[in-house]
């Protein structure tokens, strides 16, 4: 085999390999990117149906309720403008508390309830998850504009 042919084959293999990797990445992105919405956006119907996404905000005071099975929890996530009911079955993270920031991942289920598959809170008590802070900030900006 001539070295020119060899070079061509090598380039061909390289391009094919790169193509496979790009395809893998794009495919994985398509399925696994999780978008973030604020409770106000969810209330306005901007969030996708049937696809997982994240919402963030504060756990509304005195909104946490446990069902009789002990593991199903219902609470409201608020950005101070709108509140979205969330249901989650499982053990909550240590730092989950009323009045604290929270981010939940899941889908909109029947009756507009957000069925969370995962609830995240931060590792540091006095730190709000950036997504939650963002949601509250957005809502307050919106309220400020409305008040004008």
């Amino acid at each position: 085999m001539k070295s020119r042919h060899k070079k061509l084959i090598a380039i061909g293999l390289g391009v094919a390999g790169l193509g496979i990797i790009v395809a893998l990445v794009l495919n994985a992105f398509q399925d696994n990117l999780v978008f973030f919405y604020t409770p106000t956006q969810v209330a306005a119907g901007e969030a996708p149906e049937g696809r997982a996404f994240r919402i963030g905000g504060l756990v509304e005071m005195e909104s946490v309720r446990r069902e009789a099975d002990g593991l199903t929890v219902r609470f409201l996530v608020t950005d101070t403008a709108q509140s979205i009911p969330v249901v989650y079955k499982g053990i909550l993270p240590d730092l989950f508390k009323e009045g604290k920031g929270v981010v939940a991942e899941g889908k909109i289920a029947d009756g507009g309830v957000f069925a969370a598959t995962q609830v995240l809170a931060k590792h540091d008590e006095n730190y709000m998850p950036p997504e939650a802070a963002h949601a509250v900030e957005q809502a307050q900006k919106a309220q400020a504009t409305l008040a004008k």
Partner: peptide, 18 residues
């Protein structure tokens, strides 16, 4: 273009076959 997160499923789906 919005706030997103890329979770473990992405990494598993790409990293393992690569």
């Amino acid at each position: 273009l919005g706030k997103i997160s890329v979770g473990p499923p992405y990494f598993n789906a790409v990293f393992v076959p690569v």
